[in-house]
Structure formats: structure tokens, C-alpha cells
Amino acid sequence: MTPQDIAEKSAACMWADDPASQELGMKIETIEPGHAVMSMVVRKDMVNGHGICHGGFSFTLADSAFAFACNSYNLRVVGQHCQVTYLTPGKLGERLTATATEVSRTGRSGIYDVRVTGEDGRDVLIFRGHSRQVSGTHFDQNDE
């Protein structure tokens, strides 16, 4: 299998067991080794008392893109810690896009930057996630 094949199969395995991302209407736009792009439309049930996208939902989109990027090597990886900075609000009906990019991957640890943008290209939030590899794989590569 090529690294791209591994990334795609890892994403398919994760997606099949990810009702949180699915139920929020997220979509995987792009998956590559160490990289993922996901999108989500801000629904009425995602809007807070200020009439803007609740920060927890835009954070969840960033966190999901982070998860798919760092799990793209057929190794099970979890988030260890992250930092998020909210820059502008998401709007009702707007498609938000999260682009996760690997910054560093050494041993069992990784660092990934995620940029969530609005439809007009403005930055909604910036997220930096630290990952940690745990035991296991998403699929048996020997069966391929």
C-alpha cells in the first residue's frame, strides 16, 4: 500500500466509528499522510446566545481534522493537549473548513496546526494540537 492508500483506509476506518463527526454533519474533504481537510455547515442548533457559532462546535471541527491528520499512518493516535484561539465568529448557515497540517512527528509524539476558515477565507480559529501514539492500528496491513 502507498502512504496515500494507508491514509485513506485509516480515515475510512475512523469515520465508520465516529458518530460525533458524522452527526454534526462534518465531511472529509481531503485526507493525505499528516494532513486532513474537513468541513461543516453551522446549523441553527450550533448557534449560541450571541447568534454566532458556539465555540465548542468550531473547536470540535478543528479537533476532528486534527484527529484524522494524526491518525493517517495506520497508527492509533490520541490528542494529548491543545490550544485554541478564536479570531472571528462562524455564522449561521456558513460552511466552516478546518485544515490540519502536521508540523512535527517524532517517536510517539506529534504537533499539528489546524486553521478553521469561513466561506470568505477569514480565519475563524487557530488550533495547535499535540498528539500521542497509543497501541494498535486501524486495520491489519498484512491483509492488504
Rank of each mutant, 00 (worst) to 15 (best):
T2Q: 09
T2E: 09
Q4C: 03
K9H: 11
K9V: 05
S10T: 06
A12H: 03
C13H: 10
C13Q: 14
C13W: 06
M14C: 08
M14R: 03
W15T: 00
A16Q: 13
A16K: 14
D17P: 00
Q22I: 11
Q22V: 11
G25W: 05
K27S: 03
E29C: 11
T30Y: 00
G34T: 07
H35G: 01
A36K: 00
V37L: 12
S39D: 02
V42N: 01
D45F: 11
N48A: 06
N48H: 08
I52L: 07
G55C: 10
G56S: 06
G56T: 05
S58K: 03
D63I: 04
D63Y: 07
S64A: 14
F68C: 00
C70L: 08
S72A: 12
S72R: 01
V78W: 06
Q80F: 13
Q80M: 15
Q80K: 15
Q80Y: 13
H81Q: 13
H81E: 14
T88W: 03
K91H: 10
A100N: 09
S104Y: 07
R105T: 05
R105E: 07
T106S: 15
G110Y: 02
V114F: 04
V116K: 01
D123P: 03
D123E: 11
V124I: 15
V124H: 04
F127H: 10
R128E: 07
G129I: 07
G129S: 05
V134Q: 08
V134P: 05
S135P: 01
T137S: 12
H138C: 06
H138W: 15
N142K: 13
